[in-house]
Design a protein around this nucleic acid. Structure first.
Lengths: 132, 132
DNA sequence: CAGCATCCGCTTCGATACTG
DNA sequence: CAGTATCGAAGCGGATGCTG
C-alpha cells in the first residue's frame, strides 16, 4: 500500500531492535503486511473466506458491521497482498466471487485458532469492561 | 455468550452473522478483545514479552517505532484484558516489569506462528526493496 | 526511570449518493 | 449486484512537557 520510504531522518542508532528474538524494523514490508492481516476488518474478511469462495453480498451480510467502503477497501488490500483472489464473471447481473489464495489459506489457518481462543475466552464470562 | 439486549444505539437487524462457521456480532466483547490483541502495537508488545518479563525501557527500545504514549496505552489495555501483568518494585529508581499472564502466553503462542509466516513470506523477495 | 497530560495533524471509518 | 466517489466526524497516534 504505502511503503513509505523512510530515510532515517536523525536516528543515529546502530542496533537492531529485537522483539521475541525477531527483528521487525519500523517501516519494513512485514509491518505493512502484518498490519493488513491483523487490521480490524482484514482478519474478519479472511476468516469469512476460510470455508470457501464467497460473493460480495455474502461477505457484506456475513461480516456484521462492515460498511461497503471498508469491505471494498479491505478486499482490495488483501488482493494486492496476494492473499485473496477476485473472480468476476461477465454476466448480466454482476457475479463476483472472492476466495483465498494459497498464501491466504496459510495465513487464515494461523488466524482461526486465535479467533477460537478469543471466543472461548470471552465465553468464560471473564471480560467485564464492554457494554456491547 | 452475551447477546443480552445489546441495543444501546440502533440495531434494526440482529441476524446471525456467521463468518467461517463462527458468530462474531459487532459490538460484542470478542470483537473488542480481538481488536486489542491484533492492534497495531498490541501484537508487537505481546511478542515482545514472549521470551520473558521485560522492563519498560526494554520494551520502549525493543519495539521499533513505538511512542511512550502508545506503549503505555497498549500495556494498560492488555493489562485490563488480563493478558499482561504489571509488577512495580518500590525502589528508588523506579523498576517496573511487565510479563505475560497465563492467558497472555496462550494468545502469544498463537501469534508467533503468524509473525514467523509474515516474515518468511516477505523474505521470499516479493515486496519492494527493503532488506530489513 | 516510568509514566501521565495536552495539543493537534492525519488517517480511518461511516453515511450517503451515484455508476455500470 | 457490485462496486466507486465524496464528505465530514471520530479517534489514532506522535511530539512535547511535566511529575514522582
Amino acid at each position: 500500500m504505502d511503503t513509505t520510504q523512510d530515510t532515517r531522518k536523525k536516528e543515529p542508532r546502530t542496533e537492531l531492535p529485537r522483539i521475541g528474538g525477531r527483528v521487525l524494523p519500523a517501516g519494513c514490508p512485514s509491518r505493512a503486511l502484518l498490519g493488513d492481516i491483523t487490521s480490524k476488518w482484514g482478519v474478519l474478511v479472511l476468516v469469512g473466506l476460510s470455508e470457501g469462495p464467497r460473493r460480495w453480498s455474502d461477505l457484506r451480510h456475513g461480516i456484521d458491521g462492515i460498511s461497503e467502503k471498508m469491505l471494498a477497501q479491505t478486499l482490495r488490500t488483501l488482493e494486492t497482498d496476494g492473499l485473496v483472489a477476485r473472480d468476476a464473471k461477465p454476466v448480466v447481473p454482476p457475479y463476483v466471487e472472492y476466495s483465498l489464495t494459497g498464501d491466504g489459506a496459510e495465513v487464515t489457518a494461523l488466524l482461526l485458532p486465535l479467533l477460537d481462543w478469543v471466543q472461548a475466552h470471552v465465553s468464560q464470562g471473564r471480560t467485564t469492561a464492554f457494554p456491547g
